[in-house]
Computed example of a mutant assay.
Amino acid sequence: MRTWKFAKGHGTLNDFVILRDRHCMLKLTDSDVRHLCDRRAGIGGDGLLRVTLASSIPEWDGDPDLWFMDYRNADGSIPQMCGNGLRVFVRYLLEEGLDAGEEIQVATRAGLRHAWPQRDGRIRIDLGEVTCSDPELTISSDGRQWPAITVDVGNPHAVCFPGEDCPLDEIDLSHQPQWLPASAFPEGVNVEFVEVLAPDHIRMRVHERGSGETMSCGTGTVAAAAAHARRLGLGEATVRVEVPGGTVEVDLCRGGAFLTGPAAIVAHGEAHLPDLP
């Protein structure tokens, strides 16, 4: 039996198991991630954040002394970025005294990211450049189909606007929506369904690749806001995005996007994992 110390945190109820592993010494397997994120047999989470030094990540070629956000989906797969996870990661660094200051830099698989703790307790993060396109892409679920806008936020998204004839709450996200052509996303895609409440206010549900439906998706809120702004023909915009887990604010500007929202650490403890075979 292996015993690992952990913390648990969430950003708008998008929750994560956090492991501090300064030099990447834990032999973290996909099975370990699935066990820790299991809501019955483990701790429970939409994903896992390993806090490690960037010098421990072979593919990182930037500042080796930065903290690296080694993020895993609940199924053990490795995505490029997680917006809510980044805010929770920064909150953990602050509470554990691992970093401080008005601006914090974090190394990620999507590149260097910046974060700014706010006086109201929220955390603002830089998610870099966001690109939208309108390919011949269709998303389907339970026999219904919608055209989608693809958005790259360091990871892939397909954003749909079902309209008044299909309320968001009626869409079944208990299984992965399908996309055509299937070749558009060979490694899977995050799918957002958006309801427009006002020009600067939208509501969203999401099915995240590797995790299923979640209460929130940080990069998904940015993708939804960017797709909404594209439909309105806006180059820059500030959009309030409601998700089942709360509300965040997305600022879209030339050259990048910023996401501001809450992040909290809610527990610390020890987890017991079965020995490796």
Rank of each mutant, 00 (worst) to 15 (best):
G9S: 13
G245F: 03
T131N: 11
R2F: 11
G101F: 10
G85H: 00
G212I: 04
F193R: 02
G62V: 08
V239F: 04
P244H: 10
H10M: 06
V241T: 04
Y92L: 08
A237I: 06
R205L: 11
G44C: 14
G188A: 11
G62E: 14
T52V: 15
E213L: 11
G246I: 07
L273V: 07
Q105P: 03
E213I: 10
G210R: 04
I78W: 07
L112Y: 05
D65A: 15
H207M: 09
E136G: 09
Y71D: 00
E242Q: 14
L137F: 08
T214W: 01
Y92F: 15
P177N: 09
S174N: 14
L48Y: 00
C37V: 02
G111K: 13
G246A: 14
W60M: 07
R203F: 07
E102W: 08
H23M: 09
D172A: 13
R2K: 14
D142P: 05
Q178I: 11
Q145R: 15
G121D: 06
F16R: 00
P277K: 13
P117F: 04
W179K: 08
L86A: 05
G121F: 08
D32I: 01
A184I: 10
R119D: 15
G210Q: 12
I202Q: 02
E195K: 13
E187C: 09
A184R: 14
Q145P: 04
P177K: 05
S55R: 14
N14R: 07
I202M: 09
E187G: 09
V222E: 01
E129Y: 05
S174Y: 06
Y71A: 00
R254Y: 14
E195F: 04
R231P: 02
V248E: 01
E236N: 09
Q118W: 10
R2A: 08
D169A: 15
P167Q: 12
Q178H: 14
V241E: 01
G255Q: 08
V266I: 15
F6H: 03
G111T: 11
T260N: 11
N155M: 04
R34W: 04
G76I: 04
N84A: 04
A263N: 09
S77D: 03
C253Y: 15
P167W: 13
A100H: 14
G62T: 12
N14Y: 05
F258I: 06
G83P: 03
L36G: 00
L86D: 00
K5S: 13
T12F: 02
G220D: 03
R2P: 02
L48S: 00
V196H: 03
L234I: 06
G111I: 09
A229T: 05
W4E: 02
D75W: 05
S56Y: 03
R113A: 05
P199M: 11
I104V: 15
Q176C: 15
A223I: 03
V130N: 01
L168F: 12
L127T: 15
L168D: 08
P262S: 13
C132F: 04
D46M: 06
V17A: 01
T221R: 01
I78G: 03
G246E: 10
H272C: 13
H10E: 05
V222W: 00
